[in-house]
C-alpha cells in the first residue's frame, strides 16, 4: 500500500499552521510574487514568514513544499532562481516546479532538495515523466486531472517516481500550464504571472431582479440568476451565448469542484503516493474542514476501516462536485 500522504494548501502562515494542526503530512505554499500559480493580492509568504513556518511544520513532523510552478519569461529567470535559493536556505523539503529551466537550476544548485513536477508541467505520459526524472532527478509527479484510475495504474508501472494526484478542490480546464484564456482578456498570464483572473480585473454587479453578473476585464463571463449558486470568475467556467445557444451555456467547463473522497481506496491501490488538496486561495476555515475530513478518511483506510468522509459540498464551487476524468473520460 502507498503511504497516501496528505498534501495540503496554505496561502498564509496561519493557514499553514491550521493545515499542520489538522493533520497535513505536507503543506505547499509560495512566495508573494510571480514564482507561483496563486500570485493573488494579500496572499502568500515573505521569506521571514516561510522560515517561521518551516520551523513550525518541522516541529510537528510535517513537510513544507515550495511552489515555484510558473514559467519565467525570457530574461526574468533570476526571480525564480532567487526564490529557489531562498527556499533551500530556509530548509523547505521540496520544490514544486513546472519549467525545465527552473528544474535544471535547482537540480544543479540544490541537489539535496527534492524536486516535484507540478501539474502545471502537464506531464501525462510515461515518456514525458521519465524524461523529467532522468534529466532533473524529479522524485514525484503531480498528474494532470485528465487521467482515469486505470491509466494512472499503468503509468505507475512505467515510471521511476512517486505519483501525486489532486483529490479535492478547483477543477480547472484540463490543459494545465498551457491555458492562455486569462492572458487573452487581461494581458496577465496564469502561467508566467501566476494569476488566473486577477482580482483587479474582476467586477461583480448586482441587478434589480436579484441576479448577479461577473465580469473580467469588462467582459461579462456569467450572470447568475437570483436563485443560482455562483462560481469563480474564470473564463473557463464562464457561461456564454452563441447563435445556436441563445440561452447561454458553459462552453468549456461548469463551476464544479473535484471531490475524490469515494475513490481514495482505488487511488491508493493504483499506487498513488500522495493526495493533493487544492485551495491556497481559500480560508483557514476551508483548510481546517477539508484537511480534517481527508485526514480521517486516509487514516480509516490505512487502518482497514471504511472511510466515512464528511460532506464537503458546501465548500465546493457552485456547490457541485465531480469525480471528473478519474471516474470516466466521458464526464463532461
Amino acid at each position: 500500500m502507498s503511504l497516501a500522504e496528505l498534501i495540503c494548501p496554505a496561502g498564509t502562515p496561519a493557514a499553514l499552521r491550521t493545515a499542520v494542526d489538522a493533520g497535513a503530512d505536507a503543506v505547499y505554499c509560495g512566495f508573494q510574487d510571480a514564482t507561483n500559480a496563486r500570485n493573488f493580492p494579500g496572499l502568500n509568504f515573505t521569506p521571514d514568514e516561510l522560515a517561521a513556518s518551516v520551523t513550525y511544520a518541522h516541529g510537528k513532523g510535517a513537510k513544507v513544499l515550495l511552489a515555484l510552478n510558473t514559467y519565467p519569461p525570457a530574461g526574468k529567470v533570476d526571480l525564480w532562481r532567487q526564490a529557489a535559493d531562498t527556499g533551500a536556505r530556509l530548509g523547505v523539503d521540496a520544490f514544486i516546479v513546472a519549467d525545465m529551466g527552473v528544474a535544471d537550476y535547482i537540480a544543479r544548485t540544490h541537489p539535496g532538495v527534492r524536486l516535484h513536477l507540478s501539474v502545471q508541467a502537464a506531464a501525462s505520459s510515461p515518456e514525458a515523466i521519465r524524461y523529467y526524472c532522468q534529466n532533473f532527478g524529479v522524485k514525484r509527479v503531480v498528474l494532470p486531472r485528465i487521467l482515469t484510475i486505470p491509466e494512472i495504474r499503468e503509468i505507475r508501472k512505467e515510471i521511476p517516481c512517486e505519483i501525486e494526484t489532486f483529490i479535492f478542490g478547483n477543477h480547472g480546464l484540463m490543459v494545465e500550464g498551457r491555458c492562455s484564456l486569462t492572458n487573452y482578456l487581461t494581458g496577465q498570464s496564469t502561467n508566467m504571472d501566476g494569476v488566473c483572473s486577477p482580482a483587479s480585473d474582476v467586477e461583480y454587479k448586482r441587478h434589480e431582479d436579484g441576479s448577479m453578473s461577473s465580469q473580467l476585464a469588462g467582459f461579462t463571463i456569467d450572470c447568475f440568476g437570483a436563485d443560482e449558486k455562483a462560481g469563480y470568475p474564470t473564463i473557463c467556467k464562464g457561461r456564454y451565448t452563441a447563435p445556436h445557444r441563445p440561452e447561454g451555456y458553459y462552453a468549456f467547463e461548469e463551476p464544479v469542484s473535484l471531490n475524490l473522497s469515494r475513490l481514495l481506496p482505488d487511488l491508493i491501490d493504483a499506487g498513488v503516493h500522495a493526495f493533493k488538496i487544492e485551495g491556497r486561495q481559500r480560508s483557514k476555515s476551508y483548510v481546517r474542514g477539508v484537511v480534517s475530513a481527508f485526514r480521517q478518511a486516509v487514516d480509516d483506510i490505512r487502518a482497514g476501516r471504511e472511510a466515512n468522509i464528511a460532506d464537503l459540498v458546501a465548500l465546493t464551487e457552485g456547490q457541485k462536485q465531480t469525480q471528473g476524468a478519474f471516474e470516466t473520460k466521458k464526464w463532461r
Binding site: 448577479m212 447568475f224 443560482e228 449558486k229 455562483a230 462560481g231 469563480y232 463551476p255 486561495q281 481559500r282 480560508s283 476555515s285 476551508y286 474542514g289 458546501a314 465548500l315 465546493t316 464551487e317 457552485g318 456547490q319
Partner: peptide, 11 residues
C-alpha cells in the same frame, strides 16, 4: 469560522 469563497458561491 466560515469560508468566504463558499459564502460567495452560496450567494
Amino acid at each position: 469560522e466560515e469560508d468566504g469563497d463558499a459564502a460567495f458561491f452560496s450567494r
